[in-house]
Amino acid sequence: MEANMLSTKPHYPVLDALRGVAAITVLAFHIFEMHATSHHDQIINHGYLAVDFFFLLSGYVIGYAYDDRWHQMSIGQFFRRRIERLQPMVIIGMLIGGALYYFHDSPAFPNIHAVPVWKMLLVMLVGCTLLPLPPSADIRGWGEMHPLNGPGWSLFFEYIANILYGLFARKLSKKILAIVVGLAAAMLIHYAVTSKNGDMVGGWTFNETQLKVGFTRMLFPFFGGLLLCRTAKLIKVKHAFWLCSLLLLAILAMPRIGSKQQLWMNGLYESLAIVLVFPLIVYLGASADAATGRFSSRITKFLGDISYPLYITHYPLIYTYAAWWSRQPKGTPAKEALPAALLCFFSALIIAYACLKLYDEPVRRWLKRKALKTVTA
Rank of each mutant, 00 (worst) to 15 (best):
A288D: 10
M34G: 12
P333H: 10
F29A: 09
Q42E: 15
D67G: 03
G63T: 07
D68G: 06
P132N: 07
K196Y: 13
D41P: 00
Y66P: 06
N207A: 05
A17Q: 01
G224I: 02
A371E: 15
N207G: 05
P221F: 11
E270Y: 00
E144P: 00
H39F: 13
I91D: 10
A288W: 05
A186Q: 07
G59I: 08
A169W: 00
L343V: 11
T292K: 12
F78E: 12
F103I: 00
K174P: 00
I351C: 04
V123W: 11
S58H: 14
L372T: 14
R298E: 08
L27F: 08
L122T: 08
G285V: 11
N197Q: 14
I24V: 15
S38P: 04
Q77R: 09
P221Q: 09
D41A: 02
P333S: 09
V126P: 10
P329H: 11
K357W: 01
Y66T: 08
F55Y: 13
A99Q: 11
I112R: 04
H314M: 12
M254I: 01
L121K: 09
R81Q: 12
Y319C: 11
R140Y: 05
N197C: 05
L310F: 10
T216I: 15
S271I: 06
A161L: 04
I62C: 12
T8V: 09
L219M: 14
A288V: 07
F220H: 10
L27V: 08
C244D: 12
C229I: 00
V275K: 08
A161W: 02
L15F: 00
D67A: 15
F79Q: 06
A377G: 13
L356W: 08
A337H: 02
L367R: 13
A334K: 05
G127S: 08
C229G: 02
G98M: 15
H30M: 09
H71F: 01
R85C: 02
R294V: 10
T320H: 10
T374P: 00
D16Y: 01
R170P: 00
